[in-house]
Design a protein around this nucleic acid. Structure first.
Lengths: 159, 159
DNA sequence: CTTGAAAAAGCGTTAGC
DNA sequence: GCTAACGCTTTTTCAAG
């Protein structure tokens, strides 16, 4: 299911999708990349099958959406259980992202949002309940994703 | 441009979009939420204008896409410059996300991907060049976003 | 916010290169 | 594997209530 390398068409498709994954149809992407629309559809299907394209999500400004508190917990969990703990953490209401780290310690970062301090406290309690040993916690001011991407037609070693 | 509260329709729309922002048309969402398709389009337009919906991005498995190295840098920058530094960091090839923290120290987290160790070293150099004082660095094993969201019809205090 | 129509664009399947 | 053309479906747009 994995592939050796993406070609220019694949990278071009990913590039356009990263700019706007919702409003760029196969036809649009085809024009940008220089292939037929059907080719784009086939490639996207393949990229999805291969697991390279896992899904499409909106970028939400949680603060403007009413969740003024945006916090990140760093915890330590048994190294063999990071995947399982990540799943459990994601089930907690308010948790929006989990990052598993390649370290024995402080190996699970959990990002969550809430409307009041109580929400954050509740989330922290639930994390402890499922076995997350919270070691650090900080508030997030703002989070920015890359508007462009690294799948353009230039190589990694350039600019 | 900001609003007091989202209503059930807004939350329902955000909920459906979080599951799949690309393959859910206004019609689909309308069926799920129980309003007309045009209403969904109008609401989405409003949410975009208000800045709550900032964009739509694919969830890419960077490892499978050929970027085996996934790393997070934590750096300290002058508190007044976090926004500016965040922008500069995002311009660096390989950087995929920047998180500004609400703290005076270790206030900028930069996530990046690369194919080889040299890529990571290059990114680190560039970060230092623009004024990021790198204090910590770790490798990411896996990153999971929330497949569902917190805009369902239940309240934050429930479940 | 909804309805209802026309217009447009998307999609999937073919066949052919 | 890519392209092009077909017909079909869906979506969008724009009116009006």
């Amino acid at each position: 299911m994995t592939r050796s390398e993406l070609d220019d068409v694949d990278r071009g498709i990913l590039h356009v999708l990263q700019e706007d994954a919702r409003n760029n149809s196969a036809g649009n992407i085809a024009d940008e990349v220089g292939v037929a629309a059907n080719t784009v559809r086939n490639r996207i299907e393949r990229l999805e099958d291969e697991g390279i394209l896992r899904g499409y999500h909106p970028d939400i400004d949680y603060e403007k959406a009413g969740f003024q508190l945006h916090v990140n917990f760093v915890s330590t969990v048994p190294a063999s259980d990071t995947a399982e703990m990540a799943e459990k953490a994601l089930d907690i209401h308010g948790v929006i992202r989990v990052v598993q780290r390649l370290s024995g310690h402080r190996n699970l970062a959990i990002e969550a949002v809430g409307k009041e301090r109580d929400d954050i406290a509740t989330i922290a309690s639930r994390l402890e309940e499922i076995g997350c040993n919270i070691e650090d916690e900080w508030f997030i001011k703002e989070e920015q994703m890359h508007p462009f991407n690294h799948f353009g037609f230039t190589e990694m070693t350039e600019s």
